[in-house]
Design a protein around this nucleic acid. Structure first.
Lengths: 339, 339
DNA sequence: TTGAAAGCGCTACCAA
DNA sequence: TTGGTAGCGCTTTCAA
């Protein structure tokens, strides 16, 4: 079933059918109706490939995310939902590409073969080869997170530095003096993952700012690593009373490690961090955390990207989000120290 | 940059370039080399839309999943990863479509406009209008989960009935006599969600088979609902010693509700269920559960779908999975009753 | 072993 | 207000 068939049955030319569909040229009400009738009768829908070829746009956007080795978080899932939903509203489809940092067939397919009109890059590193490549090719893109020098790129990001600082401040105000930072895995940090790096900066600066004793730990993205990490923390400094973390996936293990060590949260140990709100509320005790508005970030990413596509010459915009910390049940005033 | 430009520079016809690329016709080594050289030099990649139009296949597959109102689970995320990964290996892209049960623009776009060569339907209901429609149109598809009468469809599914039966059996063998089933939300059950319905059947049959006292509860997909559900359970029958659940998202709340009520897991209450292994291990105590091989199910779905596409006349295959229960820390023998 | 040319289904320009 | 037609970039048949 194609446009020619519709034209034949409606006894008009193919161009008229095309225009009746797109509305890019006035069509008399009578013929429009006749065409519509035939279309409804046949159940015609224009072929997307042909349309893409003729129009030079696919009405699809790529979402480039890392392979599963980096376990997905609740946050990423929420984000994905936001992206797909916002795209659908604007009549765009989302093409998934699971791609490591380097060159990759799947990535090549998306942009090289022009399967999409633009891409969203997730899991940004401070120095990111993908971003460099996109910059050179002038292909529309937006990053979730930002590179070290984001000038001239479109991005949406959490202010990890500010957020972690805020967590530290919260603990400081509760009277905690010896705190630790549980970052993401060493591998991710070494690769220069933006969120991990900026979070680290935030911690270091805040510890200094508030005059605290602070140690940092990297920790794998799973419960077992979290548990092991707690053991290290407590053996390194049993006097630790506060934990700040960006590692959502390790949180369950952290809780378990503390339970095993006989430390009650929040009485013997306060914890705060950055996490999706659903996750923060699912654990016991519920986590005091900056609630990542992942869904909304997805929507913003789509909007920024569509801006790039519709007007590539405009200056790219960006958005830095600083969600407030939701006080829940995992933090409490530091216990009076008995000396 | 198009195939004509390559042809010109390599001083051959466009068809020769095309054949050199596809290998569907012998090309002399000399010209092949010359063409390749030009391609490398220019960095040419064939345009996907044009190719799709000419070949009549898009090399993209659709993944149709429900809107976020039904909160995504760890399982679904894993599954998505498996799908994308398996598809990439076979040089297919995945197009996401968030679609409710009924007719939908996004869904229409995928199959009506032929943006994809086939679709994977998630979150199947026992009576599913989408499945009926696909059956009629003879568009290649595979379902995750199966409809009431799956004859003639390709599907991959967990044996929820058998799995829940197995959970009940496990509790029965530990001496539990008064147990409850925490199913998914009432809305999902009413809509006829396959997993919820078959799980329910499994529970009802197993309770009878093992001569237990069993009550069923529906529960929203979030921590708060889980907590509320536990309250109801304990007030309805304080003598309950075992919980079987399919509701991954409510588990955190269930644990919390029990903690608030002063019931220790597994000593005062044993819990088992169906869950992604990562999730099962992240909670404390770790959940004794049938570990959903979500990633592998994604791979299987892709394979089944590609089979349908390459040979639509062949009989559709299916696969019913029954992962074993991993014993973890959430179940223990029933406490001796003091009468 | 290679080239010419007719599509694939739709869009949009040029004419009428 | 409408029709004719030349592309969009690739594949594939027919001929040489």
């Amino acid at each position: 079933m194609n446009i020619g068939e519709i034209a034949r049955r409606a006894k008009v030319s193919r161009s008229t059918v095309s225009y009746a569909l797109s509305g890019k040229r006035p069509v008399s009400e009578a013929t429009r109706l006749r065409i519509q009738q035939v279309i409804d009768e046949i159940g015609y829908q224009p072929n997307a490939s042909a349309r893409a070829l003729a129009r030079g746009e696919t009405r699809a956007l790529g979402l480039v995310f890392p392979p599963a080795s980096t376990h997905y978080t609740e946050m990423q899932l929420e984000f994905l939902g936001g992206v797909v939903e916002a795209a659908a509203v604007r009549d765009y489809d989302i093409l998934m590409s699971r791609t490591g940092a380097g060159e990759d067939r799947s990535f090549q397919r998306l942009v090289g073969e022009r399967r999409v009109d633009g891409v969203i890059l997730m899991e940004i590193r401070l120095q990111d080869p993908r971003v460099e490549r996109m910059r050179e090719t002038a292909f529309p893109f937006v990053t979730i997170g930002r590179v070290a020098d984001p000038e001239g790129t479109a991005w949406v990001d959490l202010d990890h530095q500010g957020l972690i600082r805020h967590c530290v401040q919260h603990l400081a105000e509760l009277g905690h003096e010896r705190i630790v930072f549980v970052n993401r895995s060493e591998g991710l940090i070494r690769l220069g993952y933006e969120s991990a790096r900026r979070g680290q900066d935030g911690f270091d600066l805040a510890v200094e700012e508030f005059g605290l004793t602070g140690t940092s730990y990297s920790c794998g993205d799973d419960a077992a690593s979290g548990e092991a990490c707690v053991q290290r923390i407590l053996s390194d400094d049993p006097g630790t009373t506060g934990i700040v973390t960006m590692n959502e996936a390790a949180l369950g293990g952290i809780y378990r490690g503390l339970a095993h060590a006989g430390r009650k949260v929040p009485h013997d140990m306060s914890i705060s961090g950055i996490a999706g709100s659903r996750w923060a509320e699912a654990v016991t005790p519920a986590l005091t955390a900056a609630d990542v508005p992942a869904h909304e970030m997805g929507r913003i990413a789509i909007d920024l990207l569509l801006e790039r596509i519709s007007d590539p010459s405009a200056a790219p915009r960006h958005q830095l989000l600083t969600p407030p910390i939701s006080l829940r049940a995992s933090t409490a005033p530091a216990a009076r120290r008995t000396v």
